[in-house]
Design a protein around this nucleic acid. Structure first.
Lengths: 346, 346
DNA sequence: CTGTTAGCGCGTTCAG
DNA sequence: CTGAACGCGCTAACAG
């Protein structure tokens, strides 16, 4: 394996000249540069990443901490990771995966102290997240996907749940729906302070109430079976229900099953709207589910940019951004049925 | 950040003693070791990964090359990556993601020459894969998930498509099915030499023919729409079809839709068996799909072990293994219908 | 514009 | 059982 001094010797210059030719940190006479480059090419030289990192004190590696990548049908996490990896590559960084659960803050700290990563990306942030404290104590730059309780100025990108929910409700209300239920993630996730669950619920309650409608929301385990049971319970609670918003992909299949078993048509009797979905899930159901899909790829890119802007002072700072989900028409939404006594506002 | 010489000073020993205390490469007097360890603890010392790698010429990093992680509902790839990351951690290795397509062999070579990774894991291997040549030329240890054309002794782990298909067919035949169709991945993947598509097709043809049945297989784009069209075409070609094996998760949803639209019941009229599926997909359909799910987690672990056994001579070598998919009962399989004239063997 | 050289933090001979 | 010292390959002063 050729080293930088092999290149220097072969090009008849000193190692520092080669180094500067590579980094561009100081001007090199064009013809010298040419000789160096051809020497590099003929030797197949690539700078040793470890030596470079040791000397420069920057590893050009970022770490992605994620609890579960293969969870459920979650193409949403997959899409995100893919996007992060690609964006990191574009910026000439490497991406390492740190598969730690939320409660493994100590392991994270130890790895961070080894200085293998210049910065850390944190997925699945909870409202109170000890990992954040550990990283701040270790002075490790980070960016989170999601937000902690105090939405102070910690670097983050996230889904805009409020705006997504607003779009969802407005869309349904525009079609005459008034009795709109919401199926959320599980109660455990809710009480663990899992951001999406908590904030979507808050947005739903607030927006429904503001419009003078009665909120009807349920937590639900991530499974079709539970989704089905919850749907049955919702219909029992409010038989005049005309629409269901779900933020739980697996449960949504249960929603379809329960409605089908009651001979309730979608969207004739009940409209169904999946929010924060992974790409393609809509097409898996019949009729195709209308969705607002999670902007995973965009979040991935933004998260990397947000982190790198801290590592590299030359980069333009990336403000904390909230990205709304995008409505993808399916065939599961229609006008509210009027054959039942659906109360209207005056 | 504490360095090894801080620890040495604090413990009143030399740096080399600390180093040996860490690596265990030579005996240290217990009381000396104690002093060193308490010094490390109170300083929060963690060895600098870059310095260690540079000196030892081993990065303790393995790279995972993967073309697409978020493809479709592919929890299968997600499960695999998750498992690889965890196994690497257990072995005290880091996992970096190299998001390169199959045709980006040069980029792979350049990264490899930077010596950031001690070895490489290759997903989605094709029958003729230039990446393999590049890695061998660069003398970079690797293990592939999948196999090249010449099943010589290259380190690999893979799904046992032949045995999986045998189990699938035997299961259906045991229920009286004789006219069993097979829906594969797309024609492009087939002609690109994508291993799973090619080998599953070969296994299907061979096993059906060996039993004296007529093979009826189709390639199919990975989408419900195409799956539906292909199903229609299959039923037109052989109206007496009683079972369909699919190795295409998205297409399977189309199979269900087409059968439903013809009022053909599952499994009353047609049995459906999904093979090489990701976890949980079975429950997304109604009736729940009987599946043989991809052993993603096990493959991930094995792949890491296979690679590490090459990096660390002390490890016991891991032979190339083929892991069959595991049958997961659903409700989409039943006895072959007999009201039609289904030819039986004598 | 280019060269010399002192580290970066640790592994690992070689002496003791 | 322990220490001193060299080198891994490169970056970045400092010195021309």
């Amino acid at each position: 394996m050729a080293t930088i001094s092999d290149v220097a010797r072969s090009a008849g210059v000193s190692v520092s000249t080669v180094s500067y030719a590579i980094s561009g940190a100081r001007p090199i006479r064009p013809e010298t540069r040419e000789r160096i480059q051809s020497a590099m090419r003929s030797l197949g030289f690539q700078p040793n990443a470890m030596a470079r990192s040791l000397a420069s004190r920057r590893s050009r590696v970022i770490a992605l901490i994620y609890p579960q990548i293969g969870g459920g049908i979650g193409g949403t996490a997959g899409e995100f990771v893919q996007s992060v990896a690609e964006r990191a590559r574009e910026a000439d960084y490497q991406l390492v995966l740190w598969p730690f659960r939320t409660d493994q803050a100590r392991e994270i700290r130890n790895l961070a102290r080894q200085r293998m990563a210049d910065g850390v990306l944190l997925m699945e942030v909870c409202l109170d997240d000890e990992r954040i404290d550990v990283l701040e104590a270790a002075k490790v730059p980070y960016a989170m996907i999601g937000r902690t309780r105090d939405v102070t100025e910690r670097p983050s990108v996230d889904i805009d749940f409020a705006s997504t929910m607003e779009t969802a409700i407005a869309h349904l209300v525009g079609l005459g729906h008034r009795r709109i239920a919401f199926i959320n993630h599980s109660g455990e996730q809710m009480s663990a302070g899992y951001g999406p669950a908590v904030r979507a619920a808050a947005a739903y309650d607030g927006l429904m109430t503001a419009r003078g409608f009665v909120p009807l929301s349920r937590t639900c385990d991530d499974s079709p079976v539970t989704g089905r049971a919850v749907t049955a319970e919702l219909l029992a609670t409010d038989p005049e229900l005309t629409a269901i918003i779900t933020m739980n992909e697996l449960a949504t299949f249960g929603v379809y099953a329960e409605l089908a078993s009651r001979n309730l048509s979608i969207p004739g009797d009940v409209s169904v709207l999946g929010i924060v979905t992974s790409p393609g899930v809509g097409t898996l159901s019949y009729p195709p589910l209308t969705t607002m899909h999670s902007p995973g790829a965009e979040l991935g890119r933004l998260a990397v940019d947000c982190l790198l802007s801290q590592l590299d002072p030359a980069r333009t700072p990336v403000p904390n951004q909230l990205i709304p989900c995008v409505l993808e028409p399916g065939m599961s939404i229609g006008p509210a049925r009027t054959d039942l006594d659906v109360p209207q506002r005056p």
